[in-house]
């Protein structure tokens, strides 16, 4: 049997080859045939999950509730010391210095990345802004979000903090951060589906020791991770509860 592995479509383009290298490593370690399928959108990935095609996923926290509560997935591990944080930024030329100065009717550039968009919208709430009184411009990448600000097509951009930090120094010099989240407990997680769940403990063990040998260390480097740490059921439930409170 071949299992399907997929990665949240918000992965950094710099690490796409890293996920293929990781998949090869995982197949060798587990002795299982695992096919890596990279979906180009959250919608396509969710359709595959609904059709029960996915057995292992590096999942966006926004999808964790659906995966655990509706599809019977279990958490496996998360990248050490990595959490999902959002940045709300404007053009450096914009006279606005604080979120509270933003006015209804503004254009907000975002990507489809669901947890970052949610966090960004929460950080706009102090200005009484919500989906009903802003215009949302959805973009394919965070570079395009930045472009919308630089070209004056959008007033505010919501960025994945890591993606913002990875923008070129030139682009960053043209932008101004209004607020950066410091939530710390929302993170992507590797999660395993019901058909593959019998391998959960074995995979947790493999991932926890991944950095101990040269080959595993190289794979981690290609993913941009320092290591993996186990996510237990209660930690995942807590994050799902937290996401629930933010979605209200």
């Amino acid at each position: 049997m071949t299992y399907q592995f997929t990665v949240s479509p918000d992965f950094s383009p710099d690490h796409i080859s890293g996920w293929y290298i990781f998949n090869t490593w995982l197949q060798k370690q587990t002795g299982e045939a695992i096919h890596l399928e990279m979906y180009d959108s959250f919608q396509h990935q969710r359709e595959a999950i609904q059709q029960e095609k996915v057995d292992l996923i590096y999942a966006n926290p926004y999808d964790a509730a659906m995966l655990v509560r509706k599809k019977g997935f279990l958490p496996v591990a998360k990248a050490c010391g990595v959490s999902d944080e959002a940045v709300v930024a404007v053009s450096a030329e914009n006279s606005v210095d604080h979120v509270e100065q933003l006015q209804p009717g503004i254009k907000v550039a975002v990507t489809e990345d669901p947890d970052i968009r949610l966090m960004g919208m929460i950080m706009l709430e102090p200005a009484d802004l919500n989906a009903s009184n802003i215009e949302v411009i959805v973009n394919g990448t965070y570079v395009l979000v930045a472009k919308q600000l630089l070209q004056g097509n959008a007033d505010v951009g919501i960025f994945f903090a890591e993606a913002f930090d990875d923008l070129s120094d030139f682009i960053k010099s043209k932008l101004k951060i209004l607020v950066r989240s410091q939530i710390s407990v929302i993170h992507h997680s590797l999660m395993i589906g019901p058909k593959f769940a019998y391998k959960r403990n074995e995979i947790v063990g493999l991932l926890e020791k991944m950095g101990e040998d040269e080959k595993g260390g190289g794979v981690l480097k290609s993913l941009g991770f320092k290591g993996w740490e186990k996510v237990d059921d209660e930690e995942m439930e807590f994050m799902i509860d937290l996401m629930d409170t933010l979605a209200v």
């Binding site: 950080m123 709430e125 102090p126 200005a127 009484d128 807590f238 937290l242 409170t245 933010l246």
Partner: peptide, 11 residues
């Protein structure tokens, strides 16, 4: 679980 976020001054 209780999660608090920054309120708007209007509210």
């Amino acid at each position: 679980t209780s999660v608090r976020r920054k309120p708007s001054r209007t509210k």
